[in-house]
Design a protein around this nucleic acid. Structure first.
Length: 364
DNA sequence: AACGCGTGGCC
DNA sequence: TGGCCAAGCGT
């Protein structure tokens, strides 16, 4: 352990080795009166130094790899603004780069160019910009955070204290916006670590320990970005391109990459719902969702039993991550007093609605 | 600790 | 095509 720490602090130059060899030789040849423990200790230090040099030589540095192969054009890599970096991190939670880059990042920033404009906006307007991106509590927490702080803190614990910022996002902001020597721990990094160290079902703490161990503390930005680029472009879930990987020489799991990490499959339940829509003078009844599911979005009402007199329009299905939804849609051409909100088509387009309700709308 | 939480890319 | 998966977080 002491040796590993020493190796992190001191970049072993060639002259260190030469002097080291010279000392060891002196120790043996002239039988200098060092005790046995000291001799072994010295020998071990130099053995590790040699191994470290060979390792560095065998694996081209991540820094070099990043300069040559990294995705330098990603907009959140070319800004110093912590708000921009923070926004990208939240949008990218469980969401592919392509989606965020092509459809959401720029329009959102155009509409809310600063933390202050975001905090001053109405939540419904924020949700409208988030429409189609999914996981809507992200938008709610983003807005909430914008009302809480004028600028983002750089301290990891202070970041985690903000709603919507967990351990990974806090580390990402610390590393990317404030240059702190900390690793990130998301899907790509996790998979790389599992493959390198042949881990099937690692505990989170083990992964963080490995990540800290592997981190290039001199270049945290490049190191973390490189890890994510390798994870998304080389160390793929299926058919990883190990021949292109800078970690190939030290990777212990590359023979059977599909085993690391081990994935458990879950069966998704099917949920059936009756959707009851009231239609009156080309206006439709909608309600704003209150719970955690599709939070804040507008949609058609789900009922236990549809009205007998209502007309059955057909089925709409939608696959979520944890269940499959089958909606049987009914419409009734009367005004129901209990429905407080009626909208025509152009008004509905201004509301934030989900994919299911979009499908139901199409059916109507 | 194990779930609930959306949508779309990719094969 | 259906199934897997994605820059995770809150509870």
């Amino acid at each position: 352990m002491i040796i590993k720490v020493a190796l992190r602090c001191v970049e072993p130059k060639l002259y260190t080795l030469i002097i080291g060899f010279y000392l060891v030789l002196l120790t043996f040849i002239y039988n200098i009166r060092l005790n046995y423990v000291m001799q072994t200790h010295l020998c071990n230090i130099f053995k590790h130094l040699i191994q470290y040099r060979m390792h560095k030589k065998a694996t081209p540095s991540l820094l070099d790899w990043y300069h040559t192969h990294g995705r330098h054009e990603l907009p959140w890599r070319n800004t110093e603004d912590p708000y921009h970096i923070y926004l990208s991190e939240v949008m990218l939670q469980q969401t592919q780069v392509k989606t965020v880059l092509e459809r959401f990042y720029f329009p959102f920033l155009q509409r809310f160019p600063s933390l202050k404009t975001l905090g001053d906006a109405a939540l419904d307007d924020v949700l409208k910009m988030w429409e189609g991106l999914g996981y809507y509590t992200r938008a709610k927490n983003l807005h909430k955070t914008a009302t809480l702080v004028e600028r983002l803190p750089s301290d990891i614990d202070a970041l985690i204290a903000l709603p919507g910022i967990g351990k990974n996002t806090a580390h990402a902001i610390a590393a990317f916006a404030f240059g702190q020597p900390v690793p990130v721990m998301e899907a790509n990094v996790r998979r790389i670590l599992c493959r390198i160290f042949a881990l099937q079902t690692p505990a989170p703490k083990d992964l963080w320990d490995k990540a800290y161990d592997l981190l290039d503390t001199q270049n945290p930005f490049e190191h973390n970005q490189a890890m994510m680029d390798i994870g998304s472009g080389i160390c793929l879930p299926k058919n990883p391109k190990c021949t292109l990987c800078p970690f190939a020489s030290i990777c212990t799991g590359k023979q059977t990459p599909q085993r690391y990490p081990l994935k458990q499959k879950k069966t998704v339940p099917i949920r059936e719902e009756f959707i009851m829509v009231y239609r009156y003078n080309d206006r439709l009844s909608l309600t704003q969702r209150k719970g955690k599911f599709l939070h804040g979005l507008w949609g058609f009402e789900s009922v236990d039993v549809p009205l007998c007199a209502a007309e059955y329009l057909g089925e709409v299905t939608h696959a979520y991550t944890h269940f499959k939804l089958v909606c049987k849609v009914y419409v009734y051409d009367e005004l129901d007093k209990e429905q407080t909100h009626y909208f025509n088509l152009s008004e509905i387009r201004k509301l934030a609605i989900s994919k299911v309700d979009e499908k139901i709308l199409k059916l109507l």
